[in-house]
Simulated assay, not measured.
Amino acid sequence: MKIAMANDHAGTRMKNEIKAYLESEGYEVVDFGTYDDTSCDLSDYVYPAALAVAKGECDRGIFVDGVGYGSALIANKIYGIYAAVCQDPFCAKLAREHTDSNVLCIGAKIIGDMMASEIVKTWLTTEPLMEEKYRRRVNKVKEINDKHCVPVK
């Protein structure tokens, strides 16, 4: 699985730790930056990473910023991106099972390294529920996406 990663200055250290874990587990990581803790604009990194997921160049995305919501706000503007902010493994499990999220957003100022690691592991290894009620709900969100968002070329 190929994972797009992006972050701002607040998420650099945590992103690098997650990236090292992913690579040690055999995931291919495409790192869109930033690469240091110099103040920067999150959208400069999350936007191209989200596009890579939307275009199918990467299978999923993991974005790290100070709180997680900035990344999700940007990513969810892109057609076909379903980004979820997760602050614990339970949320990560539900984000995959109930919504089939394809982007995970983490807040480096909110959670610690061990929690981030468990969130990532849970999110990557949880499959969407295939029961009819969950598929129906996911499909309704996709219909909204298709109605109001422009496909990425």
Results as ranks from 00 to 15, higher is better:
V46D: 11
V46W: 01
V46H: 08
Y47D: 00
P48N: 13
P48L: 06
A49K: 06
A50P: 05
A50I: 04
L51C: 14
A52H: 12
V53E: 02
V53T: 01
V53C: 11
A54V: 04
A54R: 01
K55N: 11
K55H: 04
K55E: 15
K55P: 05
G56T: 11
C58P: 09
C58I: 04
R60Q: 15
G61I: 05
I62H: 00
I62G: 05
F63G: 05
V64D: 06
D65Y: 11
D65W: 10
G66W: 11
G66N: 10
G66A: 11
V67K: 13
V67A: 15
V67C: 08
V67H: 03
V67Q: 06
G68R: 10
Y69I: 14
Y69V: 11
Y69H: 09
G70K: 05
G70Y: 07
G70A: 12
G70C: 08
G70Q: 09
S71L: 03
A72C: 09
A72N: 07
A72Y: 02
L73Y: 00
L73H: 01
A75S: 14
A75Y: 14
N76Q: 08
I78F: 01
Y79I: 12
Y79M: 04
G80A: 07
G80R: 05
I81Y: 12
I81E: 03
A84M: 14
V85A: 03
V85D: 01
Q87G: 11
Q87S: 01
Q87R: 13
D88N: 15
D88L: 03
P89R: 01
F90E: 15
C91D: 14
C91L: 07
C91R: 09
A92W: 12
K93H: 09
A95K: 08
A95V: 11
R96G: 01
R96Q: 04
E97W: 07
E97Q: 15
